[in-house]
């Protein structure tokens, strides 16, 4: 009999995980660093930003990037670097809160539908169908125009909207895991539904959950930018990347292209980094892929 498994059990300490990340997924590691920098920017915006986000300097209006103002200044003479750093804070809060809420909603709906099945699944999924036929932005605009703009509303609405749509993915994943022999085996040893869901289903759908979460962080940041662009976002003068793009960025596109480039690049890099990091995490963390290399 072949005893492949004399190797020590795979319970990797965290530093070993980090070396694996760097060795196997260098791009993922770089993107992870970018994500951490982005998080730090958000958290320590007060310390990092050289100027206040709303500090007006009429003498320095529309200055191109220089040593004093690395990202230039806008039409009111506000430092773009500081505004981007403060914008990161809004994006961190909105992106991660909305994505966390969305993932929780997706997992709850997806697991309940797939596990319970029957008329419950039927009803809920028709509701999800109906929901998905509306573009998210329309729903957002309606809710924000009724409730008024504000960060809380945006997080809740984005979380629900993205969560309901994402429940499809989780439901599909759970359905396929549900058919596996080990779930039958768990039933055959008399395990309760709750235990089967927690111990046998959820760990095996972690791969789509991780990907969904990172994808949702990016989507939520973009959606908030879109809302701000349309004027339904977090009210000014709070700096968000979307509002910077749509406000001064668009108005002064010809006089000061850096007004749009700075927040636009921030947005692109961060969203890209988050999704690449998510992919790398999925590849490394998914227990089903352990030992597959």
């Amino acid at each position: 009999m072949s005893d492949i498994a004399l190797a020590p059990p795979a319970r990797a300490p965290s530093w070993e995980f980090l070396t694996r990340l760097v060795r196997d997924k260098p791009l993922g590691a770089i993107c992870g660093v970018v994500c951490v920098l982005f998080l730090l920017c958000g958290v320590f915006a007060d310390v990092l930003a050289p100027y206040g986000f709303n500090q007006i300097s009429p003498l320095n209006r529309l200055k191109p990037p220089s040593w004093a103002f690395p990202f230039g200044t806008d039409n009111l003479g506000r430092d773009m670097l500081s505004r981007c750093i403060y914008g990161a804070r809004m994006s961190v809060i909105i992106g991660f809160s909305a994505a966390a809420l969305a993932t929780a909603v997706s997992v709850t709906i997806g697991v309940l539908c797939a596990w319970l099945g029957g008329w419950f699944d039927m009803l809920v999924q028709r509701f999800v169908d109906a929901w998905m036929s509306f573009p998210e932005l329309i729903v957002l605009i309606v809710v924000v125009s009724v409730l008024g703009p504000g960060m809380g509303q945006i997080i809740v609405v984005l979380g629900l909207a993205l969560g309901i749509a994402g429940s499809r993915i989780i439901r599909g994943a759970v359905l396929s895991v549900r058919q596996t022999m080990y779930v039958h085996a768990a039933q055959s040893i008399g395990a309760k539904s709750r235990r089967i869901v927690w111990r046998h289903l959820l760990p095996n759908v972690m791969a789509p959950v991780i990907v969904l979460f990172t994808n949702r962080v990016g989507t939520a940041i973009l959606a908030e930018s879109g809302l701000s662009f349309l004027g339904f976002g977090v009210p000014p003068p709070a700096p968000t990347w979307g509002a910077m793009l749509s406000g001064s960025g668009r108005a002064y596109m010809y006089q000061g292209p850096w007004l749009a480039l700075a927040p636009g690049l921030c947005l692109t890099i961060v969203v890209f980094a988050i999704s690449m990091f998510g992919d790398a995490l999925r590849d490394l963390l998914d227990p089903r892929m352990r030992g597959s290399r």
Binding site: R199, H200, R288
Partner: peptide
């Protein structure tokens, strides 16, 4: 009632040992 029997009074072994263990648990 049936859960209390399964695995406790009656044990079951399946055909596919490759897929009847949960890959995510030790």
């Amino acid at each position: 009632g049936i859960r209390a029997i399964r695995g406790s009074r009656i044990g079951m072994i399946f055909q596919e040992p490759m897929s009847s263990l949960n890959p995510a648990l030790t």
